[in-house]
Design a protein around this nucleic acid. Sequence first.
DNA 1: AATATCCCCAACCGCACTGCA
DNA 2: ATGCAGTGCGGTTGGGGATAT
Length: 202
Amino acid sequence: MDKKPSNSQDVEVRKGPWTMEEDLILINYIANHGEGVWNSLARAAGLKRTGKSCRLRWLNYLRPDVRRGNITPDEQLLIMELHAKYGNRWSKIAKHLPGRTDNEIKNYWRTRIQKHIKQAETLSGHHHHHQSSEINIHGQASTSLTTSTTFMSSDAVESYSPPMYPPPNLEGYPATASPPSLSNDNFWNMEDLWSMQLLNGD
DNA sequence: AATATCCCCAACCGCACTGCA
DNA sequence: ATGCAGTGCGGTTGGGGATAT
């Protein structure tokens, strides 16, 4: 059925979660060479990843000025206001929130805000005309989100944990960095990775 | 205690756009 | 002019932890 490509140039592109080692390789390469031209960068760095994957990983996670975790109430309010104005223009919204990425804002909106909006709708408005969270994505979104704004700013900041900014951007690895056969013990430890980063001058 | 369900979010996909040869 | 490679964006998903039964 599947003729295996038997291509001498096997590309074997990796997918799925990034490992610590891959992260360090990418960080180190960009530290030495800068970003850009992601496809060739991926090749030059020796990563079995697509350029897109490298770019995404860098922009959303590894970049030094990226902020992750606990959205502050101010940020939440800003997100709601901007979303009311722009709709699902996540990257546009993200430009107003330093350190936040479009992906994180998008996730935040869908998991925390949209859920509450829908919930509130069904609770109060069994027959409401469904303005819902669907914004008309044409230009200004008129007045669709006023209800949600007032709704949220009151007390819906339910389980808000105080902001904990991780000083370095190296943390939060999934612990099992997803080798298919999970052999936790023969994986890299931090010291190996740090020395590896330092050794890799170029 | 075991299992089903929910929920989150990192990373994927397809498509649109841009610039270049 | 047109095809192509690179990039950016938004929607979507799947794996796994958290929570419920």
